[in-house]
Design a protein around this nucleic acid. Structure first.
Lengths: 342, 342
DNA sequence: CTGAAAGCGCTTACAG
DNA sequence: CTGAAAGCGCTTACAG
């Protein structure tokens, strides 16, 4: 392994000062055109790369963003919700586009947060992503805020905290999934997903669901709501309870696609046909959704837009610009699980 | 935002020298117990975090690994094969376990590689992951080798290059998927997936497939092999060609699950029943595989083990230990797409 | 066990 | 447009 070249080596070869090399390599307009070209040629020849540790140390910025992905602690961590994996992909791409590197870290909600990333100057800012018990997070978020850490989170808007969030308009999404079912002639709609402030995204979807029910002259039947968190298994369990409960239903709104897929399994095991006997709508539009049988009608969250907004907003925040919490409009993707399209 | 504390601030407060602070914070045995505790308490109180840029610059190591994920350039980059996303997850976890940070970067196969990560001292080593045209990669791999970069790749073993790879035993996997079909009484097996050195993983699976055919007294019918790369769409196209080709077949080996899923769609569109008329096996065992209809029998690659091996091997390599290319044994996961279990 | 000092490789005022 | 010099915040010989 060869010794790594430094800017001094280049300076020596080029017959200029090290300062000039540094400037030339960063395309400073202060450097003479010809000098710059010469220096860059030598740098290339020597396979020189700026030492990031040195340059970051000196300039006190890292051009790196850290992504903290929270896994549901009830989950064994081998399965991350595919929705978040998809977000990870779009965030990575958005960072690359802006010339930032991305440090990825999976966290347990219970962990001591590695908010150190910014404190230790490894990252200029943080993106927080993942479901989890919001109530548990809150104090940590406040701590981050206190420390003056630059961060943006994915999720439901929080009213009384000056948090910058990018999230889906879950309330609107809840309305759309419900509306669609009602238009299909369903009247006894169940909702599978936790309805509490511990899971604000789901709660918002549920509230949208309830509002749509009311707007369409239907009543909210508490006996048709069952809690479930994030997983296929939870969806399966909730659907089993729903079936066992005996309360008649002809449609299910699932708070996320994984829950919908679990519900699908439960329905199939009980010989209940989809969509003939029970129509089903999910939320997220993960890749799997188009491969289930029948293909799942769902509310899509635009992960690409989300990634760009998350990164863009964080960078604005870091550079001291005015930023604000943004809601992304959901989009109903109609497939087969609620009957054929009209 | 408060000023960040430095080790000098702590030294001042503790009434010791900065060197001692540095030692105490790294739990050096050279420091007196009481002194260390005092220093650590002050550090905590001041919310002090070691500046990684400074410490990395000085110690010339970063405790960071970079993961380069290659996207198939023919793909619009919004979809990364879920198999790699799953690998990403397991690698992230393996890094965390070892106390390393992970820098993630998506690359186009055509890009100038950011092998800079190591050159620029941002990472101590690289993990290379992703399908792509191997032939295109080769010269870049050689360049990495020449530079003395520490890296480990996921994929098929390469014979004439001193590359360290971690990969699945694709040949064995090809045998197992084929054997299973033959045991189910199928005799006219098609193979969907590129059979060329441009896609060595697929090629190895194909070779295993052919060998199994021969071992069981069946002939390899070239008319039943169709090229396809990595995607659902490619699988769909290949299956359509297979069907249109007119050569009779009663089973399909798909080189990856996405291809299998595409083939499934083609078969269903043509009114061909699975598994009655045609049995189907995939490769990878992505999460979707258990949600298709019928559920997909497939050859599982153990991503968790893969992640641990990739990270562990890379760290060994960095610390100068002897390392070697390792093959992970595949595992057949039997579901419904080849008929009910015996 | 502790401290004074050098130095990792850059960027950036400052002076010309 | 260019150079000499300071300094980012640590770690690590070196000396005691």
């Amino acid at each position: 392994m060869k010794e790594k070249a430094t800017s001094f080596d280049i300076a020596y070869k080029a017959g200029v000062s090290q300062s000039t090399v540094s400037r030339a390599l960063r395309n400073s307009p202060l450097v003479n055109e010809a000098t710059r070209e010469k220096i860059q040629a030598i740098a290339k020849e020597l396979n020189y790369k700026v030492d990031k540790n040195a340059s970051n140390l000196r300039s006190q910025q890292s051009d790196t963003i850290a992504l903290l992905l929270f896994a549901d602690p009830t989950n064994d961590d081998s399965d991350i919700n595919p929705f978040f994996l998809s977000m990870l992909g779009s965030i990575t791409r958005a960072c690359a586009k802006k010339g930032y590197d991305l440090l990825v870290s999976f966290q347990q909600a219970s962990d001591d947060w590695h908010a150190d990333f910014e404190d230790s100057n490894k990252a200029d800012g943080l993106i927080l992503l993942g479901y989890g018990d919001y109530v548990d997070y809150e104090e940590k978020l406040i701590k981050l805020l206190d420390q003056g850490t630059h961060f943006v989170r994915w999720g439901a808007e929080v009213k009384n905290l000056p948090l910058i969030s990018i999230g889906c308009d879950n309330h609107q999404g809840g309305i759309e999934m419900t509306e669609h079912l009602i238009k299909k002639g369903r009247t006894k709609l169940a909702f599978l997903g936790s309805a509490s402030s511990h899971a604000p995204e789901f709660f918002d979807r549920y509230k949208g669901h309830c509002q749509s029910l009311k707007d369409n002259g239907l009543v909210v039947n508490q006996a048709l709501q069952f809690n479930a968190l994030y997983t296929e298994e939870a969806g399966y369990q909730a659907a089993c309870k729903l079936i066992a409960g005996g309360e008649p239903f002809d449609a299910i709104c699932a708070a996320c696609d994984l829950i919908a897929i679990g519900a699908m399994r439960a329905l199939q095991e009980h010989g209940i046909s989809i969509p003939e006997q029970v129509a089903l709508v999910g939320f997220d539009d993960i890749a799997v959704a188009s491969f289930t049988f029948p293909a799942l009608t769902t509310v899509k969250q635009d992960t690409q837009l989300a990634g760009e907004l998350l990164v863009g907003t964080l960078l604005d925040l870091i550079s001291g610009e005015e930023v604000k919490t943004t809601l992304i409009p959901p989009e109903l993707v109609i497939r087969k699980s609620c009957g054929n399209e009209l």
